[in-house]
């Protein structure tokens, strides 16, 4: 089963230690064959909307920094419990904040 884990911005500003720990975590997940893809998301974004068949592309509007999705990880796991455990491990590293887990099908 595949899950997309996204995390919102916020929490403490990352320091050396956090970078190092995250690097280790990502390497470990890659090595164990769990992590399929991961990346950070820039705060700037374009909005593409269709209203009454007319498609418009606009800058923003930017949500509050805390609400913006800041990163994602696509993982392949055996069970929901497994992805929850991964999310907990991630949280223990990055500290307070929130994220979302969704199954990909």
């Amino acid at each position: 089963m595949r899950y997309l884990m996204t995390t919102k911005a916020g929490g403490e500003a990352p320091d050396e230690r956090l970078y190092e720990e995250m690097g280790k975590f990502v390497a470990e997940l890659t090595a164990s064959g769990v992590l399929l893809a991961t990346g950070g998301l820039a705060p700037a974004h374009l909005k593409v909307a269709s209203v009454g068949g007319e498609i418009t592309v606009t800058d923003g509007p930017f949500a509050e920094a805390k609400e913006a999705v800041a990163g994602f990880a696509l993982v392949e796991v055996r069970s929901e419990e497994e992805v929850i455990e991964l999310a907990k491990r991630f949280r223990r590293i990055v500290g307070d904040g929130e994220g979302v887990i969704q199954q990909v099908f």
């Binding site: 164990s32 055996r78 069970s79 929901e80 419990e81 497994e82 929850i84 455990e85």
Partner: peptide
């Protein structure tokens, strides 16, 4: 609160470790 089933959590963690 999801993931409260201890047995299944243990199973998932065990498979990882």
């Amino acid at each position: 609160t999801v993931g409260a089933d201890v047995g299944r959590t243990l199973d998932a963690v065990w498979k990882l470790e």
